[in-house]
């Protein structure tokens, strides 16, 4: 089962490598990873999407907690959470598909952020389902290049887990 885990870490030299090394060294999977500073520059927050049965997820959480630079680990799938990913898609654009590209961008509430004679670059944000649906519809129109941020997520409600 897929789990989204958020990890608060000390923003120290090598910390990303410690987290990633733990996953590779113990044979855990990383489906996506995103990391950046929080409001405090000494603290960073990571969102990792991983897979495994209950026992593996339990081990992942415990092993992450064991890292000295890790301050807090939350398995978001234990409650309600919001997750978003942003993608940039560079599309082949021609007279024939331009109207459809514009239409799809609007439907998915995206933006065209770069235009050339032969390309449109679309920015899209959404959860897993929306991104997947958008890509399925864009694919037949000619995707030239794609980059994704990986998922970021946080718990719903008023709690502060940063």
């Amino acid at each position: 089962m897929r789990h989204t885990i958020t990890i608060t870490v000390e923003n120290e030299f090598g910390v990303l490598s410690r987290v990633v090394g733990l996953f590779s060294g113990r044979g855990f999977n990383i489906d996506s990873l995103s990391v950046a500073e929080t409001m405090e520059s000494s603290i960073s927050r990571m969102t990792i999407v991983t897979r495994g049965d209950d026992q593996i997820i339990e081990q992942i959480i415990k092993q992450l907690n064991k890292l000295v630079n890790v301050i807090k680990v939350i398995d978001l799938d234990e409650g309600e959470y919001i997750d978003r990913e942003m993608i940039l898609v560079k599309m082949n654009a021609n007279e024939k598909n331009k109207p459809e590209l514009l239409r799809l961008t609007e439907i998915f509430r995206g933006k065209i952020v770069d235009v050339t004679q032969t390309t449109y670059t679309i920015e899209l944000t959404g959860d897993d389902g929306k991104i997947k649906a958008a890509l399925e519809l864009l694919q037949p129109l000619g995707i030239r290049e794609i980059t994704r941020t990986g998922k970021v997520a946080m718990q719903r409600g008023s709690g502060n887990n940063g």
Binding site: F13, S17, V68
Partner: peptide, 16 residues
């Protein structure tokens, strides 16, 4: 050596 020993130490430090 900090990179090499990361998985076989409890923790390691590079003093900068």
């Amino acid at each position: 050596i900090v990179g090499i020993t990361r998985p076989c130490t409890k923790h390691n430090f590079l003093v900068k």
